[in-house]
Amino acid sequence: MIRSSVGIGIAAALASATAYGINIVYARMATQQGVSAADLVFLRVFLMLGAVAVVTAISRGALRLPAAGRPAILGLGIASAGVGLAYFFAVSFVPIGVAAIIFYTFPLLILLASPFVDGGRFTLHRFGVFALAFTGLAIAIGPKLGDIDPRGILLAALASTLAAWQFFMASRSGRHVGPQAMMFWSHIVIMPISGAAALLLGGIGWGAIAQAWLPSALTVAGYLAGFALQMVAARRAPAAMVGLIFCLEPVVAILFAGLILGETLSHAQMIGSLLVLAALIASSLAELRREPQPAPVPADGR
């Protein structure tokens, strides 16, 4: 029975990583067709908030938010809004492969920051993994740095940093708030931020969304499916195992960017991406050797 439950969690994690990886491809397609990244974030958060409210009502779940959990929920919502906005805007300036290489270093930032946030010490393994990833980034981006829009690089780096912060805030929120309440209240924080960003850029572009309805719908659907499956994976499989499986997400994003958008990586970018992926796998394998811990569920995946 336990093995069956873990198997379901692993399958859900694989499906979630695939959904998230495809989601960003259609987000880039939508932005290329005139849809604002802020509009996409607002739309998906609006629908997610409605879905969480319906599920909570049906299951009679509690949405109580203890005072002790409010600061972490606020931080989680701000970080989650920033991740979605920064990553979606990044892929409107640079190819998905470049943005993905930078963004998916956030697990390594978590590894680097955890001694400061959760206590502990730096180890040779931590330094080695981070050095490998940094080398991969230098190989992938360095030779063509002058040809890449710096706005996309900075936004992808910001999204990665915020995703690491999101992880720590999700972990702290989970100590005081149940999963449904955490999702609901964090999305309450995300909505006005994404709405304000959309208004600053001229308001919700319903006309552009209607014109690019297919990639917009697939972007939102990929996010909703990925998030729901991530919840299943977090409850049924060890956190380190889920983290290892999610290393496939950038691979899926890059592969589908090639299949759907015709974007391809240069040889240097391919080698650099493989080094970053190797660093991610090495850090996840190290976590697998530790005692399994419950996987925190971020409020806004990608």
Rank of each mutant, 00 (worst) to 15 (best):
96 I>Y: 04
43 L>C: 09
143 P>E: 06
110 I>Y: 00
167 F>P: 11
211 Q>S: 14
290 R>E: 09
35 V>P: 07
182 M>H: 11
184 F>I: 05
208 A>Y: 02
225 A>P: 00
218 L>D: 05
37 A>Y: 09
272 G>C: 09
116 F>G: 04
100 A>T: 08
93 F>A: 15
78 I>S: 03
156 A>Q: 05
242 V>A: 15
41 V>T: 08
253 A>S: 15
4 S>M: 13
257 A>S: 15
153 I>K: 06
70 R>N: 01
293 Q>P: 01
292 P>E: 02
93 F>L: 14
176 H>E: 10
23 N>H: 06
251 V>K: 04
130 F>C: 14
289 R>Q: 05
42 F>W: 14
218 L>A: 09
199 L>W: 12
36 S>H: 13
89 F>D: 14
164 A>M: 14
169 M>S: 13
267 H>R: 13
43 L>G: 12
232 V>C: 01
58 I>A: 07
211 Q>V: 14
163 A>F: 15
286 A>Y: 02
93 F>C: 13
159 A>I: 04
302 R>G: 15
228 A>N: 07
271 I>H: 10
104 Y>S: 08
66 P>I: 02
72 A>D: 01
173 S>M: 00
176 H>G: 08
91 V>R: 03
86 A>Y: 08
70 R>A: 07
4 S>N: 13
60 R>N: 05
217 A>E: 03
134 F>N: 02
109 L>Q: 10
49 L>N: 10
127 F>Q: 07
87 Y>S: 10
205 G>D: 10
92 S>I: 08
175 R>F: 11
219 T>D: 04
13 A>I: 06
158 L>E: 03
